[in-house]
Each structure stands twice: as C-alpha cells, then as structure tokens.
Design a binder for these strands. Structure first.
Lengths: 346, 346
DNA sequence: AGGTTCAAGTTTTACGTATAACGTCGAGGG
DNA sequence: CCCTCGACGTTATACGTAAAACTTGAACCT
C-alpha cells in the first residue's frame, strides 16, 4: 500500500514507516519492538504498533542496529577445513548455541590446513564480536589477538594461547584409553602413524602414547609421519611395515580415522589381515570408522558438544563471565579392528 | 598513544581519529581509504592519510559502512547438513568465490535435512544481500522468496523455483552413465536404494534410472526407500534382497555413497561378495567411496566447483547480469564394486 | 489549592561512514 | 583585469536504530 505505483523498488519499511502507520513516534516503535515498553507505552498502543509492523512486513535494519549498539552478535569460527566431518560437527554445535543466543556464526576455513591459519581474517567482510578458533598454531593465535577481539581457543595448548580462554577435549585421556586397551590385549610394539603437521593437538597424542606405553617395560613405539590423506598414510604404513625383526609392530595407532584407512589399505596390499595380523586404531570416530571392514576401534570425539562448549565459553567471555574450561571427556569405542597380537612365529 | 592512561577501553579508532592525526577532514580519509581520491586529493596527502591509518590501526566500521551503503556484501548459504562432505564442499567453493569479491558467506544448516528447510531463517542475525539455497523443497523456496532477497537455487527443480535462477549439476546424465555402465556389463535387474526423503534431486535419479533401463527390453527396476543413514540402508537392502526369483537384482544402484555403504554391509551379512554376487554403485564420490573395500563405483559430483558456480550466479544476479545456468557435467568413476553379473545358476 | 508522582508518550541525539554539494586559491586566457 | 577552470580539499547530510532526556496531562495526597 505504501509505495504504490511509483515504479521504484518496494523499499523495505523502516521503523519510521511503522510509526507513521501506527500513529506513534519512531521511538515508540523501537521500544515496542525491543520489548522494553512495559511501563512506557500502553498495552493497546503496543499492540497497534505490532500490528502495523506485521502488516508492513517490517524487519529491523541490522546494520543500523549494529552501528547503534556497537556490537553485531556475530562470531567468527576458524576451522582448518570444513570437509573434515569433525569440524563440521564443531560448527554445527557452535551454531546451535549461538542461535539460541541470537548470535550468528561466520566461518573462516583456514586454507592452510590444521594449525596453519595465519593470513588476514575476513573480518573485512563481517563485523565481529568475538572469535572462536580451532586447532591453531600458537603464532596464528598471536595474529588473532592483534585484532583486539575476545578470543576463545579450541583444542589448543593452554600454555601457548597467551591468556585466551581455552576449551579442550581430553585427548590425552583418549590416547591413554587406546594404549591401555592395546596393552591389555597384549600388544607391546606400536607403530604410530602421526600427522606430518605439527600442532598441539597431535603432539599431545605422541606424548601420551609414549608415556603410557613406557609404563610397561619392553614396549617400543616407532613413529612415522604422514600427511592427513589416505594415500600418504598408505605409503607411510607400507614403508614402516616392510622392516621386520624382533620389535616388529603388532598395533598401528593412527592420529585420526583417515590415516587408519590408509593403514587398512597398506595391510591389504601386503596381504595381511586386520585384526589377525595387525590391530589398527583411529581417532575421531568419523563415519569412515563404521564404513570400513572391519569396523574401526577409535576414540569418539564429541564434536558437536565441543562446538557448543566453545561457543558457550565465548559468550561467557563476551558477557564478562568466566567460562568453564575443564576438558570434555572422550570415549574409546572398541570395534573389530583390534584383537590380541598374533603369536610370534618361534 | 591516543587513548593514554584514562583507564577506559582502547576504543577502536574511527575515520575521524585518522583525519585528526593526518590533519585532514574525515571526508578525505573516506576518499583515500575507498581509493576514490584520484584527482581529489594530492598524492602526498593521501600517503599521509594512509600512514596515519596504519599507525592507529584503523579498520573501517563495517556496520556503519553497511548502513550507509545499504548493502552488506554478505550472502546466506542454505544447506541441508554440513556434516555431509558434499555440502561442505559446496560451502568451500562458494566461500572462495565470495571472498574473491569481498563477500562473506554465512551458513544456514537446515536442521530438517535435505529438502525440508522451512523455519525462519537467521536473517535475524545477519543482514544479507542475497541467498544461495541448496537442495530445497519447492515450498521452502516460496518461503525464501518472501524475504524479497535475490535468490539463487542450487540443485533444484528449475520449474519449481518460481523464477529464481537455478544452477544444477547434470544429475540425469550421471545416472544415465551409471545405468549404461551396468547395462554394458550385462546387468538387467536393478535394485534402487532411494532416499526416503522426496525432493527433486532424488526424483531425478529415479526417473532417469527407469528411463535408461527401459531402453532395453526385459530389464527390471525394484525400488526400496531408505533414510540417508548406513543402518537404515542396511536394513532396506537386506529386506529387498531376501526375495528371490527370476528377476532377482544383480546390481544395486544407490542414491548416494552412504546408502551404498549400507548395501555393502547387507551383502556382507548375507555372506555375499561384491562385485562377484552384486555390483553396487553410489553417488557423490565422498571419501567413503575409496575407504571401503572394494572401492566404490560412483558418480563424482564437483562439489566445490558447484559452490563456485552458484555463488558466481548469485553475484551476477546482484549486479543485474544474467547468470550462467547450464548444468555442470558430472563424471562416472569406475572402481572395484562393479563387474559383470554372476551367471544365473541354470 | 498546590504540589508530587506517574503513565504514556515525544524529541533529540549519536553511532561511523560515504558522498553530494560547496569553497578557495592560483594559473592561464581573453 | 576580470573570469573561468582545475586541483584540492571541506562542510553538510543521510542511512535506521536505540535510548537518554524531556514533555504533558491527569490522578492523588495533604
């Protein structure tokens, strides 16, 4: 009705248009729409305003509100790569909590992969209230802090995050559970297929594997590094398994499920069977883990809950509260890829 | 240096602060920062402004700019579920093109799954210039149009998108390639594990499978519907395969790779081997496809390129240009899960 | 009657930017 | 010598909202 036949675009209505339609001032509209009208505007008037707003299809202009309030209710989530199910889960959880508080989440998938983000963040294209950064290297954190925005780190070295709040999974416990499981089955010689990229999240795994295994005398851990692709893991595993001798590994501990898939393929090419000849373990519990045969023994990371906790922590920081930061428990999921080691041929 | 020891927050500098520092007016700063100063400001002055901006760490206030310009350089991407690698790829491609044009992308992962999005979009928390919507039901499209925002549909019925530009993959050709491949191998009786959710993207598959198979007399297609989970696909496949008789299927055509994984498991439980007893095909070419044994014959969807094309189309619409809309070619990837059918026991 | 209080609004201002419209000064032309 | 014109800026304004400060009129108290 308003912008009749003048040919121009139907021009989004503003609070002033609503005010005109309801016969009140713009301020009254703002009060009503913001639910701050109790005791300031008569109930009947408020209703008139709401009706007018509905009829005009009024939607507040976010840019104007953001400018006025000096905040945007938008957080940036920095993740290494969204095509990794784990991070997709983190996003999902974070976005869920954010939505509950009327926050939006914009993503920054660091093109350089895990732990490598450092180039300019797209704060350019989004005004932000805070940053949630996942699995990042310490120097990248410093760059982030430069923005002066509230920052919460996910899955990062608490010591290296320079005072930023940190929310973590209990990865160390996960590796401990895996290693204990394998030790209990009787394994003593481990091959660790580790990520070639160094970062806290992977260093923790290596450290804890070594420490846990060392609790029993006579154990050995051989480490080989691989890029986080199936092909590279395959090659790395093949190389490592071709050696033999007294300490030939019987269990392959992989830094994530994708690497474990590479180990499966390597074993198959060498004519070896899992778990009869080798036990294999993963980390993350992606959908891969139940797709392969035998299904993979792995550690389930509660990705969505992790994202939820991270966003909750960021919101807490934004409100001046102290975030909860004790690590989230993880769970060993025993499937068909682990079994007692073969008896050594005498 | 600016806000010395007054105890208050270090307050982000504005263009006015820069102006003061450089001894010019705020307007001059705006001209210089916007690269519109040629012929209006002396080169030396411009340099002085830039230096001042750098020293103060000036970053333009996006909210103010958005308000002034009436646009936000932000697009909304609606996807069914981000934990699906395909959509993660679409996002990645879309975000890449967007970034190239200084656009941001905010996500709306529809909680209801493929084709079901319809609840209020979080335009609430983000001011948007346009919407890119993927794999949505027609009624949801109508709801979207209600916002009055420029809209580009991905992977949707061109007829049902009510005039919105549509960018598609050539899914029909993909199914044609699969079916031809199986027919050539000698298969005549198909089991189609179809998505229980009805939407254009899946209906196309069913239609084209039927049409292609029908070109040869004596072919049969049995269809069973399943939710898009491995477990459900497993159950559906088991049910369907227990029947036998003259037209017992020898090839299982699945609507996506995840369903195919279910078929693998069903076969394994029934003591049947792939591809000796059954050929199985998927759709999407997710990482699952090469993780399973045997590796899966499937159709590769260029997810990232699809996202790129979609965002490019949206940008074209925003600039008043006509977007490119011919379907993106897809490619059959033949792996170990397909082989000639077993000879019928006489 | 005079004062106080309260409901129910309104008027005004500020947020930071981009840009249209306006000045000013010196050089060059007629 | 006046006038125009280009170079180099500046001043003023608008975008739409939220909220502080102000106004008005009636009810109530003493």
């Amino acid at each position: 009705m308003t912008s009749g036949t003048d040919g121009t675009a139907p021009a989004r209505p503003t609070s002033r248009d609503v005010a005109r339609a309801a016969g009140v001032s713009q301020a009254a509209v703002s009060l009503v729409m913001g639910d701050k009208w109790h005791g300031r505007v008569a109930a009947a008037t408020a209703e008139r305003v709401r009706t007018a707003a509905r009829e005009l299809g009024y939607r507040p202009n976010l840019a104007a509100r953001n400018l006025r309030l000096g905040r945007t209710r938008t957080a940036l989530l920095v993740v290494p790569a969204l095509t990794n199910e784990f991070f997709a889960g983190v996003y999902t959880g974070a976005a869920r909590v954010a939505a509950r508080h009327d926050f939006g989440v914009v993503l920054y998938p660091s093109p350089d992969g895990v732990g490598q983000a450092r180039d300019p963040f797209p704060s350019a294209s989004a005004a932000l209230d805070g940053i949630l950064a996942s699995s990042m290297a310490a120097d990248a954190v410093t760059a982030l802090r430069g923005d002066g925005l509230p920052l919460v780190m996910l899955d990062s070295d608490p010591a290296g995050s320079l005072g930023a709040a940190t929310v973590n999974l209990d990865l160390a416990d996960g590796i401990r559970q895996i290693t204990d499981h394998l030790l209990t089955l009787g394994h003593r010689h481990f091959l660790h297929i580790a990520s070639a990229v160094r970062s806290w999240t992977f260093d923790v795994r290596a450290r804890e594997l070594a420490a846990t295994a060392a609790r029993l005398p006579g154990t050995t851990v051989r480490t080989v590094r691989s890029a986080l692709t199936v092909e590279d893991a395959l090659a790395a595993a093949q190389r490592a398994l071709h050696t033999s001798g007294e300490t030939r590994p019987t269990a392959i501990v992989c830094d994530d499920d994708k690497l474990a898939t590479g180990a499966y393929k390597a074993a198959r090419r060498m004519g070896l069977r899992i778990p009869e000849h080798f036990s294999v373990t993963g980390f993350d519990d992606l959908s891969l883990a139940t797709a392969v045969e035998p299904e993979l023994t792995t550690v389930r990371l509660p990705a969505e809950e992790f994202g939820e906790r991270g966003m909750a922590a960021l919101l807490a920081v934004l409100e001046g509260r102290t975030p909860e930061t004790d690590p989230l428990p993880v769970e060993l999921v025993v499937r068909g890829s682990t079994a007692p080691p073969p008896r050594t041929t005498p």
